[in-house]
Structures are given as structure tokens and as C-alpha cells.
Amino acid sequence: MTIRVLLADDQVLVRAGFRSLLDAQPDVTVVGEADDGRAAVALARQLVPDVVLMDIRMPELDGLAATRMITEDPVLAAVRIVVLTTFELDEYVFEALRSGAAGFLVKDTEPAELVRAVRAVHNGDGLLSPGVTRRLISEFAARSKEPEESAPLARLTEREREVVALVGLGLTNSEIAGRLVVSPLTAKTHVSRAMVKLGARDRAQLVVLAYESGLVRPGWLG
């Protein structure tokens, strides 16, 4: 299966570099390019790509607003968005995750990492490393109001709540399995069921929900 990618960045050279790299892959093809957020939304609706690489800072409509418009469109429910940023702790990244982005990449990431990221989000994985999760989420969650436990959490079993909390701390499925002394497949099943019950598009949104619901607090991070 070929992964169809839409590029959204106002810098021509950035788009050209990404296109050259991705089109060279046997399982990836760039189906369109947009130089601002409004064009990105229009092309996403027209082309329905698998993955959108979305710059945050663009004219006309920024990447945050464009991300929200795409993720809120039921027709584009399967589209995965990776936001692109210059700095790892860009102040807008957390808002992008809240808006439904599957993760983020810094623009100077290694070529192999960019390709891996496209494949990862296409497979439904959130693009947040444990270390980045700890720094990013703790910084921005600390600025938020005191979280209130949301009603959807009542739908989770005790084990699922436990698993969601561990996802929020940045643990992988294998690490969760080790912590709970279960198989990696069992851990993955609990994560998948929690995502369905909470209406999370992907693992990245599950991390955000863990903090916003109060299952995890910034002070718990090591």
C-alpha cells in the first residue's frame, strides 16, 4: 500500500526537500503541496491523503487552525497530521496535539527519521518519544487550570485507567507490559480499547487526555 502524503509549508525549498526524500521511497508518494493553511485544508478535502506534514507558522491560515479544520471534518477522520516546528518545545505544539495532530517533528530531523515518522503515523502510532512527552506535556500541562476528571473516564476499567496513565507518562507498550507484568499484546489491547472508549484518534491524543483528565499530573514526572 502506498502512503499518500500532503505537504503544507510556506517555504518552497522545504517542500522540495521533503518531496524529493519521500518520493524516493517505494511505499510513499507526495500527492500535493500547499503554501498556506487554507490551501492545505482545501487540498486535504480534495485529495484525502493518508498523512499531512503541516508547518505551524504559515500565512492566510496557520497550521493550528488548519489542523483543527481537518481533524474536525468527519470525511477526513482517517487523515493523520504531523506538525512541523523549528524548536522541540515550540509553544504551539501542545495546542496542535490538542487539536488532533498525531505528533510533531522538528524541521532539521534526520531524513531517515522523517520517513520513519510518516510510516509510523500511517500505522496509527503517535509520534511522541517518551523523553519529548515528559518535557512537552509537563511544561504545558503545568500552565493549565486544575484538571477535572472527565465523564468518559468512567467508561474505563481500572486496568485501562492504569494503562492510560502510563501512556501519559510516555511509556511504550513494551514498557507498560513490563510495569504491569502482562504481555505486550495485552498492553496494546488495553491501549486500543481505551482509545476507542475515550474517542482518541491516536496515542498522542491519549497522552493529552491523560493530563487533561487528571489521570497524570506534571509533578509526577521523573
Rank of each mutant, 00 (worst) to 15 (best):
I3N: 05
L6F: 12
D10A: 00
D10Y: 02
D10G: 01
Q11N: 11
L13F: 09
V14W: 01
R15N: 13
A16V: 03
G17Y: 09
S20C: 10
L21W: 01
L22M: 10
D23H: 09
A24W: 02
P26V: 03
D27G: 08
V30L: 12
V31E: 03
V31R: 13
V31K: 14
A34H: 05
D35I: 00
D36R: 01
D36K: 04
A39T: 08
L43R: 14
A44S: 15
Q46R: 15
P49Y: 09
V51M: 07
V51Q: 04
D55W: 08
R57T: 11
M58I: 03
E60R: 11
E60M: 07
D62P: 07
G63D: 07
G63K: 06
T67L: 11
T67P: 11
E72H: 09
E72G: 10
D73Y: 06
L76S: 08
A77F: 02
R80S: 13
T86C: 02
E88G: 06
L89Y: 12
L89M: 14
D90C: 01
D90F: 01
D90L: 01
Y92M: 05
Y92G: 05
V93T: 05
F94W: 14
A96M: 11
L97C: 02
L97H: 03
R98F: 10
R98A: 14
A101D: 05
A102F: 01
A102E: 04
G103P: 03
G103K: 06
L105S: 11
V106C: 12
D108V: 05
E110H: 09
A112R: 14
L114W: 02
V115H: 12
V115Y: 07
A117F: 03
A117V: 02
R119E: 12
A120N: 11
N123G: 15
S129C: 09
P130D: 11
P130K: 10
G131M: 13
R135A: 13
L136V: 08
S138P: 05
A141G: 14
S144E: 15
S144V: 09
P147W: 01
S150A: 10
P152C: 00
P152E: 00
R155C: 07
L156M: 06
R161D: 04
E162D: 11
V163I: 11
V164M: 03
A165D: 01
L166K: 05
V167F: 07
L169G: 03
G170I: 04
T172I: 04
N173A: 07
N173H: 09
S174K: 10
I176V: 05
I176K: 10
R179H: 10
L180D: 05
V181K: 15
L185K: 15
S192L: 07
R193L: 11
L198K: 12
L198D: 11
G199L: 14
G199Q: 13
A200S: 13
D202I: 00
R203F: 03
R203K: 13
A204Y: 02
A204S: 11
A204V: 08
L206A: 15
V207H: 09
V208A: 14
V208G: 07
V208S: 08
V208F: 08
L209G: 06
L209C: 06
A210H: 06
Y211H: 13
E212L: 10
S213M: 04
S213K: 00
G214C: 01
V216M: 04
V216T: 06
R217D: 04
P218K: 00
G219F: 00
L221E: 04
L221M: 14
